[in-house]
């Protein structure tokens, strides 16, 4: 036990860990937003609601079938991803020719519907979701205690984020995606089914949000408003990082999570607002965002 700037090291490292956990969720969600925005030119306001759907899907799967965390980690994103595909096919696809703002308004409406329905059936209070047995307990690292589940969340989000980056930036499929973002008409002329690619991209982005939701379920309570509170912070993260770069979204997400954690130690009153303050400063200094390209 030692002290840094008058703060006990356990408290400091504890908050750093929480910051990294929050950062994992910021990174996963802003990554999904960036991928969707790249292909669809739509800001997916329902991203937070779909994250919440993932958590509820895991909860319902456990209640209805008894299937625990591990199956839910696969099944819930698939189910929520399919609902995303349905949303894209029935609604979003009619908006691509219109102003971006309509996409935002439509997905905002969808978010209200999802949140309202969840509140009707489950109430506003949080529901607990138990940890899987295999991830209980933790490691004593000497300077702090590291719960296994938290370590797992950070590791998995890093792997998923970097995996997504690899697929988009380094594979053939990713090159199609990037090409279709730049010039859909030309890519279509080459024989690539661009509309299907757009649909699947939206499904993937939504599934990513649901995946984050399942991972969040054992840490935070499963509650209808868990997504809307998070998504506004994620918007600020996206403004800070800029949506032009996948790697930028990941780095910004983790970085801001850590900064928020540190703020909780040194200046707890500002921990809710620090990300917004950073956003304001970034807008003053680098209006295009840290990793953004000037439009």
């Amino acid at each position: 036990m030692f002290e840094i700037f008058g703060i006990p090291s356990t408290a400091l490292f504890g908050q750093l860990l929480i910051g990294l956990i929050n950062g994992s969720f910021y990174a996963l969600l802003s990554l999904g937003l960036a991928v969707i925005f790249g292909m669809l030119n739509i800001i997916n306001f329902s991203h937070g609601a779909q994250y919440m759907m993932g958590a509820f899907a895991a909860y319902i799967i456990l209640q209805a079938t008894g299937l625990g965390y591990w199956p839910a980690l696969i099944i819930a994103p698939i189910i929520v991803g399919i609902t995303g595909i349905i949303i894209e096919r029935t609604m979003l696809q009619w908006l691509y020719k219109l102003d971006h703002l309509y996409g935002l308004l439509l997905t905002f409406g969808i978010a209200l519907i999802i949140e309202g329905v969840a509140r009707n059936y489950f109430g506003s209070a949080g529901l607990p979701y138990t940890l899987p047995d295999s991830l209980r307990g933790g490691q004593n690292l000497g300077f702090m205690f590291l719960p296994n589940y938290r370590a797992w969340v950070i590791a998995v989000s890093l792997v998923v984020c970097l995996g997504t980056w690899f697929v988009i930036e380094r594979t053939k499929l990713g090159s199609y995606l990037r090409a279709a973002t730049e010039n859909p008409t030309l890519v279509r002329a080459m024989g690539v089914n661009v509309p299907r690619m757009i649909t699947l991209t939206y499904g993937f982005g939504v599934a990513l949000a649901a995946f984050a939701g399942v991972m969040a379920a054992p840490i935070y309570n499963v509650s209808p408003q868990m997504g809307s509170e998070l998504i506004i912070v994620v918007f600020a993260v996206v403004v800070i990082g800029g949506m032009g770069s996948i790697l930028g979204a990941i780095v910004t997400g983790f970085g801001l999570g850590v900064i928020e954690g540190l703020t909780k130690v040194f200046f707890p009153e500002a921990s809710n607002t620090v990300i917004f303050v950073i956003m304001a400063i970034v807008l003053l200094v680098r209006p295009a965002g840290l990793f953004g390209r000037r439009a």
């Binding site: 800001i43 703002l101 912070v233 600020a236 996206v238 403004v239 607002t273 917004f276 807008l283």
Partner: peptide, 28 residues
């Protein structure tokens, strides 16, 4: 003056984020 530094969809996100910040101030 902060929000008009970015166009389109970012403008909406910035105004939302600033409003959320002031919501937390109002709460405290």
């Amino acid at each position: 003056s902060l929000a008009i530094r970015r166009q389109g969809i970012y403008f909406a996100m910035i105004t939302l984020a600033l409003a959320q910040m002031m919501y937390f101030f109002a709460l405290q």
